[in-house]
Simulated scan of single mutants.
Amino acid sequence: MTLSKKGTKNANKEADQFIQLQTKGLLQEGSKKLEGMVTKMNFIELSEATNKFSTNNALGLGKIGVMYKGMLPNGSLLAVKRLHGCQSFEKQFICELLALGTMRHNNIVPLLGFCRDRKEKLLVYQYISNGNLYDWLHVREGNDKILEWPLRIKIAMGIARGLAWLHHKCDFQVVHLNLSSNCILLDNNSEPKISNFGGAKISTFEGAMFMDSNETDSSNSSFVDHGVWELGFIKKDVYDFGALLLELITGNELIQIDNYPNSLCESLVDWLTHLLTSSCDISSVIDKSLIGQGFDGEVFQILRIACTCLKPSPAQRPTMLELYNTISILGERYGITNDSEILRQSEIATASTSNEIVEVEITSTN
């Protein structure tokens, strides 16, 4: 297994054909962009990179597979997701390829390649060194991981920035639909990377939507009404982002927040409104590591932002671009600048310009 720039140009014909077949022409333009960005990889060599998928190399168990840490002979690190052998995960496999195969953005985890060998399906990503946000927020006993408030603001900004790009500027409109702290990875600079796109939906700006990866006839795509896309899908991401903001502040999962003693409130919005308008002590609900640090005013501001995301009516929720700009006002206090060029194409990091993208040439499996 060797690293080479020409590998991502010469080894992708099969990957390109595979993607075009699955999408039945819906993403023909996008599949062209796969060339040079995502590589068809060799199962044997990926097995060797992960020490034959040793449990010692396992990074975590997900719903559709196990993530392993891998190392190339030159020392470069990879994260390899080995999907469970169930045929029902075919759609997630294709969705992840479609969603990540043509995208490069600083807040989206880079997909480097894939492997499809008999019953084996693997997705290969850049290794992100600092684990996921969930493990940072839900510290086990004896673990000294602490996220300072400025870092939480930076993380919230990065997630909002990535989602705003997916919703408003990516070549195709992409909605994640399963956003959680488990799928937010942090690099060594605590920059968040959104991952786990197996449940994502992808649409062109004209409304053609990829629907079913298991069929290659005309039912493989359909047209989605703009209102359905906006209110049913995009605003679902906004709601999930609001829940993530609450988790960043309280250090508790959504289910734990729902079980707070204040049972008179019928919804999260009711609870938040009560919290923001009553004289109750905020220290009873925020993460203990934030108590007494002088950030109460900013915590209240983020709570208000979360409240707008969690409104029962999707039409009343803001866009991710609006949320990014709002949170950026707080970020500027800590030297985290608002990228006012968020919707410019030049913002996209490409495999040729990003020093974090690993280009891999791997020999054919045949």
Rank of each mutant, 00 (worst) to 15 (best):
N355V: 06
L72V: 08
G113C: 11
G101D: 05
K63P: 01
S278F: 08
I342V: 13
L77I: 12
T102V: 10
S218R: 12
K13H: 12
Q92R: 11
T363D: 11
W271I: 01
L248N: 01
N178T: 11
S4E: 10
R317C: 07
N182E: 06
K9F: 04
L34D: 01
R161I: 00
D171M: 10
K32L: 14
D225Y: 07
I184F: 05
Y127T: 04
I255F: 11
E215N: 12
L133N: 06
K91Q: 14
M103W: 07
F89S: 05
S4P: 04
L137P: 00
T250W: 13
C183N: 13
P312G: 09
I184K: 06
H167Q: 08
T23W: 04
S218K: 15
I194Q: 02
Y334K: 00
E361M: 13
F18Q: 08
I146A: 12
T204D: 11
E141S: 15
Y125N: 03
N130W: 06
E14V: 09
T39Q: 03
C86M: 15
C170E: 00
G62M: 05
K9S: 04
R104L: 09
Q345C: 14
Q17T: 08
S222P: 02
Y125V: 03
N178I: 10
G251N: 14
E120K: 05
W136M: 02
D225M: 06
Q293I: 13
S283A: 05
Y125G: 00
L26T: 02
K40F: 12
K154M: 05
M41I: 12
F241E: 05
L275A: 08
Q301Y: 02
T250F: 13
K145V: 09
F205H: 03
L254D: 07
E347R: 14
L186F: 02
Y127K: 09
K5S: 06
W229K: 00
K24I: 10
G85Q: 12
L231W: 05
F114W: 10
R140Q: 15
P314R: 09
I108L: 14
K6D: 08
N338P: 11
I362E: 08
S181C: 03
K6S: 12
H168G: 05
I202Y: 02
K24H: 13
M209A: 15
E35Q: 14
N56K: 12
L59R: 02
S76Y: 06
E266S: 09
L264K: 15
F205T: 03
G65P: 05
M1D: 07
K201N: 07
F233D: 00
N57E: 06
R333P: 02
S284N: 14
E359K: 14
D16S: 12
T273M: 08
E347T: 15
V238T: 01
L310I: 13
P192T: 04
K9W: 09
E35M: 12
S354Y: 08
T2S: 13
L246N: 11
H105D: 06
D117M: 11
C86L: 14
N196D: 15
N366L: 11
S180R: 14
Y125R: 09
S352M: 07
I159L: 11
